[in-house]
Structures are given as structure tokens and as C-alpha cells.
Write a protein that binds this DNA or RNA. Structure first.
Length: 476
RNA sequence: CGGGGCGUAGCUCAGUUUGGCAGAGUGCCUGCUUUGGGAGCAGGAAGUCGGAGGUUCGAAUCCUCUCGCCCCGACCA
């Protein structure tokens, strides 16, 4: 008898912790705050990487790689940048048995070393735009680590681009935010809100920071990706100039943007339920799992044979398929295990089905089961998976809409914020009010939605004018 | 850094008060029976009791020091 997961309604954080470990996504490492990503969890990340990498290349970016270690002096060249990151830096002071003359910082992000390099790569307007991405690990020393959501070392991609004009850099910032939103919605089946961060929440060294914000199963927000308009801040700090077609010398305009293994945590919390993970078909390492059912060895060989044929047909049809032919577990155990691991479609094949020439399909996101003729499985499987993908997105969207509220009274806000969800409120645009809201409620302004309709009103705290509503929520 | 708690088998933990053979459940291995929603029986392997020092005939247990982890705060996103 295996213990059930802690229910989400009993203790959501504990549910998260348990599901990540029991579904074999990751475990804690001997180093505090570090995580070991297990093959199933890494498989999920690989699916994400391969889709994102294709999207980056389709938008003209090339991959490159910059070093893990950055001279400490580089960090200090951009004032806001060093101020923002210094509390969470890990620094190498010794190497080769000696104290280093200049310590190396383990990158918390790579703007500084990249801009130091871009200075040499960029001379003329003909070198622009320069569109680079790198897949890398970074280290940020965290006080409160949680698997995938906040770890001291994590995997990510960071895009770094240089442009000849402010407008072009801004377009790039918004374009990549859009790429992230498309990825979140079409692949993760996770609806997101694109918007601008407040000055207080923006990236250290950016002119503007934009984010996509998603709602988790408990109604809290998770920042799932960021895109920064860096203006000329890094170009000035690292003296990166180019010659225009008129022969004038100008500083370049920059962007950077990133998503990390935090997306795995987002996926877990966006769709998971009391049975475990629920993975979207487009990213699931295993899309369909075949579970054979039989009595005795004679029946076993017949059933397994039929399953093997089906496995090959499904793989030929393009579905990532696994045949669970382990003998030491009974079907009921396997059903529960693959549900814990979030496999979108389970195919049950037993003697009764084979007599009728059918198999049973069970859908993870809805719990529905239906029978299908054996011959139809391979031809239908991709349609069935796409249907499940859509169903999962619709479910997540409906959940977000049910937990999004427009509120105009600060008293009402304070009463309802503990129940979770997104609150669309008027805010006067000042940092003072933003801090007051956080101090009194622990909630933060997530972002200022890009598609917010003109809706003039009055700040729910101060009564000062506000052009449109912002999203306020408790967040991870 | 402040307050609290915990380190014993892969995992969860009992045993520590009152010193006296190293334990349970689960997982793992072997065999048999099972197999349409988390199987049953039998047998077996598995531990530097976080580490160091001390007290004692004898320490998981008492004393001193030390390392690590978890929770709440502070910090951060």
C-alpha cells in the first residue's frame, strides 16, 4: 500500500514538495538550495528547450556560450546592476591553490561579460542587430529555496541583443515577451498575462522590465518569464558604440530576456491535482503509456504482443509512447503511478478489449475514459493528444477567470486577498502606494497588463487618478 | 543573524527521560500465488545511531565541543 499525496486543499506547499519528489522530477542536493534534476524532470526541461530553441531561431537568434566565471570588476561597472545582485552572489576567491588577485563571480546573469564582449563584436551599423542567446546555468544565493521555483543554481536561457535604435530594442523586448506568452499558452497550456513590471520590481540595470504572469492552482501568481528593455545602460557602462551610416558614433540599444527551470515548477502548479502531475501533451516526455492487463502467462504473451504492435504504430505516428510491461506490478498500481507522473493518455489493453478488437483510452486532465477500435489508435492518437492539449488550456483558463476579480475598495481587497486569485485594481502609479499595499497585505503588483483597456478610475488606496487597472496578487 | 525543532536501514520514524544484544513500517532481493484502480504469503540483505572528544566495566542514550538540516522571523523573487 502506497501513501496518497497530501491533498492540495490541506497543504498546497506540501503537496507541491511531495509531487515533485514522488513523480521523480527532482530531489534536494547535498548543497543547500541546490537541486538534482532527475531524468523525468530533465526530460520535461528538454522538451521545453527544444521548442523554445526553435522559436528563438525562427526569430533570428543564434546560440553562443559565455563563461561561468566573471571578473568581479565587471559586475561593478553598472551601478544598479551590482546593487541589485550583490546580496546573492557566490564568489570564487581561490583557485590553483592560491588566492586570486581578482575574485571571480559565478554568473547570476551574463549581461556584464556579454557586453564586455559585444564591445569588440560591434563597430558598424552593419553589425546590428546582434541577436544572441545562450543556454546556461546561473547561481543566485537564495535564502528560501524551493525545488524548481527558487534554487541557488538553476538552468535557463538568456537572450542578449544589440540594436541601432531605441524603437528596435523596444520591439525586440515585446517580441520576445510574446514568444514566451505563445510558448506558455500553446505548449504549457498555461494562460499568461503579458505586462510591464513596476519600477520597484524591474531588473537591476533595465529601463523597463516586462513579464508573463501565470496563476497557479492555489490562486497565487508566478512570474514565468521576463524580458528587459535595457536602453543604453549597458552600452554606456561597457562603452559599446557603433558607427551609423552617416559616420556618427552612437551607443547601441540593448535587450535581455530569459526563462528558467522555474517553468517546470509552473507547469506542476498550473495543472496538478490531488492525483499528481497533469502534463500538457506537447511537452510530456511520455505522451501515451500502454498498460497491459492479463491473467496467467499464456494471456500475458498474447496481450504483450498486441501491446508491442500498438507501441510501434503509435511511435510511427509520432507519439512519445511507453509500454509498461513490468511484471512485478499489477495494473491498478501502474494506473496510479502514471497518473502521479501526469502522462496525458493511458491506453489499457486487456483480454476483454482484445476480444472486441478495442482498447480503452483514459485521459489524465479530465479523468474520462473511452473505447477505441485497435486499428484507429495510431491514426487517431495525434488528434486525441491535441484535444487533450486544448482541454487542459481551457480548464486552466476557466480556473483563472473564475479567480480574477475587479475590485475598487481597499477594504474589500484586504478581506479577499487571502483567498488567492488575481485582483484588477486601480493604482496611482507611486512606489509609496505599492509598498503600502505589500506591507498591509503581502500582495504585490504583478504587472501592468499590455492589453489593459482604457478604464480611467481612482486608486483604491489614495483615490488619485489611474489610467487603467493593474494585477495585484500574492506571488511565489 | 534571532527564536524553536530535528539528525538512528534507501525513505518515514520508535528507542534517549531511568546507560546493558540495533528496532518497526515501507522500500529492496529471492521464491510461489496473483494481475480490469495502489496484491498475499514465506524467506533474505541492509545501519560508523551526523562528527570529534570525555565520563563509565559498558554510551544511540549522560557531559563538552562541532557540523548539517527543517520551521517561524529578517532578507530575496
Amino acid at each position: 500500500m502506497v501513501e496518497k499525496l497530501t491533498s492540495q486543499s490541506v497543504d498546497y506547499p506540501r503537496w507541491y514538495q511531495e509531487v515533485v519528489q514522488r513523480a521523480d522530477l527532482a530531489e534536494n542536493a547535498p548543497v543547500r538550495g541546490a537541486m538534482i534534476i532527475k531524468p523525468y524532470g530533465y526530460g520535461l526541461w528538454e522538451q521545453m528547450q527544444s521548442v523554445l530553441d526553435r522559436m528563438f531561431k525562427e526569430t533570428g537568434h543564434q546560440n553562443a556560450y559565455f563563461p561561468l566565471l566573471i571578473p568581479e570588476s565587471f559586475l561593478k561597472k553598472e551601478a544598479e546592476h551590482v546593487e541589485g545582485f550583490s546580496p546573492e552572489l557566490a564568489v570564487v576567491t581561490h583557485a590553483g591553490g592560491k588566492r586570486l588577485e581578482e575574485p571571480y563571480v559565478i554568473r547570476p546573469t551574463s549581461e556584464t561579460i556579454i557586453w564586455d564582449t559585444f564591445r569588440n563584436w560591434i563597430q558598424s551599423y552593419r553589425d546590428l542587430p546582434l541577436l544572441i542567446n545562450q543556454w546556461a546555468n546561473v547561481v543566485r544565493w537564495e535564502m528560501r529555496p524551493r525545488l524548481f521555483l527558487r534554487t541557488t543554481e538553476f538552468l535557463w536561457q538568456e537572450g542578449h541583443t544589440a540594436h541601432a535604435s531605441e524603437e528596435e530594442a523596444h520591439e525586440e523586448t515585446i517580441r520576445m515577451l510574446g514568444v514566451y506568452a505563445t510558448f506558455a499558452e500553446e505548449y504549457m497550456a498555461m494562460p499568461v498575462i503579458q505586462g510591464m513590471k513596476t519600477d520597484r520590481e524591474k531588473f537591476a540595470g533595465a529601463v523597463k522590465t516586462y513579464s508573463i504572469e501565470a496563476m497557479m492552482g492555489d490562486g497565487k501568481a508566478l512570474q514565468a518569464g521576463t524580458s528587459h528593455d535595457l536602453g543604453q545602460n549597458f552600452a554606456r557602462a561597457f562603452d559599446v558604440k557603433y558607427q551609423t551610416s552617416e559616420g556618427k558614433e552612437e551607443y547601441v540599444w540593448a535587450t535581455s530576456w530569459g526563462v528558467s527551470t522555474r517553468l517546470v515548477g509552473a507547469l506542476v502548479m498550473a495543472h496538478g491535482d490531488d492525483q499528481g502531475l497533469v502534463l500538457p501533451p506537447r511537452l510530456a516526455p511520455i505522451q501515451t503509456v500502454i498498460v497491459p492487463i492479463y491473467k496467467g502467462s499464456e494471456q500475458r504473451s498474447t496481450v504483450i504482443e498486441a501491446c508491442s504492435v500498438m507501441e510501434k504504430a503509435l511511435q510511427a505516428a509520432g507519439a512519445r509512447t511507453h509500454l509498461d510491461d513490468r511484471e512485478q506490478f499489477r495494473p491498478g498500481f501502474k494506473f496510479n503511478e502514471w497518473e502521479l507522473k501526469g502522462v496525458p493518455v493511458r491506453i489499457e489493453v486487456g483480454p476483454r478489449d482484445l476480444e472486441r478488437g478495442e482498447v480503452v483510452l483514459a485521459f489524465r486532465h479530465s479523468g474520462d475514459k473511452k473505447s477505441l477500435p485497435i486499428e484507429a489508435v495510431a491514426t487517431e492518437v495525434m488528434n486525441v493528444l491535441e484535444e487533450a492539449q486544448r482541454g487542459l488550456f481551457e480548464k486552466a483558463l476557466a480556473a483563472r477567470e473564475a479567480n480574477t476579480h475587479s475590485i475598487d475598495s481597499f477594504d474589500e481587497f484586504k478581506e479577499r486577498i487571502d483567498g488567492g486569485g488575481f485582483f484588477l485594481c486601480h493604482w496611482d502609479g507611486t512606489t509609496e502606494t505599492e509598498e503600502l499595499i505589500q506591507q498591509q497585505t503581502k500582495a504585490t503588483i504583478r504587472n501592468l497588463p499590455l492589453d489593459a483597456p482604457d478604464d480611467p478610475g481612482r486608486c483604491m488606496v489614495t483615490g488619485n487618478p489611474s489610467p487603467h487597472r493593474v494585477i495585484i496578487s500574492k506571488a511565489y
